[in-house]
Design a binder for these strands. Sequence first.
DNA 1: ATGGTTGTTGGACAA
Length: 267
Amino acid sequence: MKIATWNVNSVRARMPNILTWLKTSSPDIVLFQEIKCETSAFPAFEFEALGYKSHALGQKSYNGVAILSRFPIEDTLEHLPENENDPQSRYLEATIQGLRVASLYLPNGNPVTLDPFQSPVQFSDKYLYKLVWMERFQKHAAQLLNKEHPIIFGGDYNIIPEAIDVYDPKGWELDALYYSNSRAAYRSLINLGFTEAFRTLYPHQKNSFTFWDYQAGAWPKDNGLRIDHFLLSPEAADRMITCTIDRTPRGEEKASDHTPVLLELQI
DNA sequence: ATGGTTGTTGGACAA
């Protein structure tokens, strides 16, 4: 079973790139983030023509997540518990072939503070939203773990886990993606018992980025970040075969600023 | 120091 996660930065603007990539990579399940359209505008028919069922959770202009699958998508959950009234579409969970799979788009959270010179530090509303979102996600993840099913949480976590995952760690210390509280929250999530697929397989591999900013020549200079991750429950980790980052789509015309991550499971 | 880019939109805002 091949499962991919990809922040496409607008599904409609990215259709030519996505269709090309689907044909060459041929994943069984795809987790999209930032589809940036309402559910009714999701191009389900075009994916259906390639053999994919889909379930989209859209939103006007911003955010939005979706799942494509060659197999039936069942028992969908469109919000984290406690986030039922959140207007931001960032979480979609479903059962596919006995796997509990989620496509998640964690809040960016910048800026961390409104006034960087203020002491003590006062977090911005955006950063507090990120921290609360992570707390709710962790609570939900802990409950799901108890069921002892294979779980795959894939998506844009907007978290740089460690120094090896960013081209300039010093320069990113005050950014919400690398801020100490963000990394601490991510660590405590993993410490519930999840396996982060890529870094577990390749503990020391540098320049394994999944995102390069559109600005300042980040892509040609390889000034990237590794912020798109797969977290696996023990029952899923037992079946892990490979996890790879496919840089090819980032180098093409009209590319998303993220590139896909692929996970292969024995199933 | 500022600007550098892309997408949704039709002016900011988000990333």
